[in-house]
Amino acid sequence: MQPIVSIKNLCKTYKSGHQALKNINLDIQDGEIIALLGPNGAGKTTLISAICGIISTTSGSVTVNGYDTVKQYRKTRGLIGLVPQELTLGAFEKVQSTMAFSRGLFGKKPNTAYLEQLLKDLSLWEKRDAALMMLSGGMKRRVLIGKALAHEPRVLFLDEPTAGVDVELRKDMWKLVSKLRDSGVTIILTTHYIEEAEEIADRVGVINNGELLLVEDKAHLMDKLGRKQLCIELRQSVSEIPDSLSSYQLELSDSGTHLTYTYDVKSTRTGITSLLQAVNAAGLQLKDLQTSQSSLEEIFVNLVSEDQAQ
């Protein structure tokens, strides 16, 4: 299947001389949710801006649904909706009219029924006649989403949609995103919240210093880089690990009551069963067992610090 967005050798050097994107290659499939993770200044917003036509590119190309974003910008931009990172809204316009404005700007005929439904979905129906400057930050964020969706785009870019949004609203946003996905919209979002990527994305891309370090299936990424740990709590403390357990490379806590076993989730045989038998055989009594998995956050931090070290 042809990717909905295809980025080829994309580079961007700002006038200041700063190279914000270095040879980015990425194909985004129709209907998927992809999360772009990266520290401040990594180039996430720059990448989105280049695709949407807000900034010019230095070299490389981007196609959306097979159309070139520069030569056939009318076709590509019509397919795209963008929620910017900053809360950029006018002051005096009304919620409903600013959404109608956005729809018109993208060349669509007015459709009050669609806008009404959209306002309701975003819990903005009560506020439809409020002036934009009278809204709270979270409401403004939702108005921006409404504006981006007003022309029924097939691809939605969300640049940090949940920055500065409370937990409740963030959950709502996640629900909205999965509802959009169900209706067939492809979603590209950037975020600093790793749990957000973990929660809603199908694939995760990590950007640092203008380079796309990796793009992986989320589950695959966690498998590949994720390690699991089994923590064994003992009834009595031991001063050292018994020789019979040396092949498991256990770590003993300072208190002598906790043994930690690290294993690879990929391998078919984790060795847990034999470890537990060996622990028993060594005469140690178990008090409790606990497993933990490294989160996307740890994976991410590791990746970026490795990249920095190079």
Partner: peptide
Amino acid sequence: YFPKFTGTIYELLSAPI
């Protein structure tokens, strides 16, 4: 100038116009 000042110019730049 006003859209440039408030930042809403992003919409004009990303619209198919």
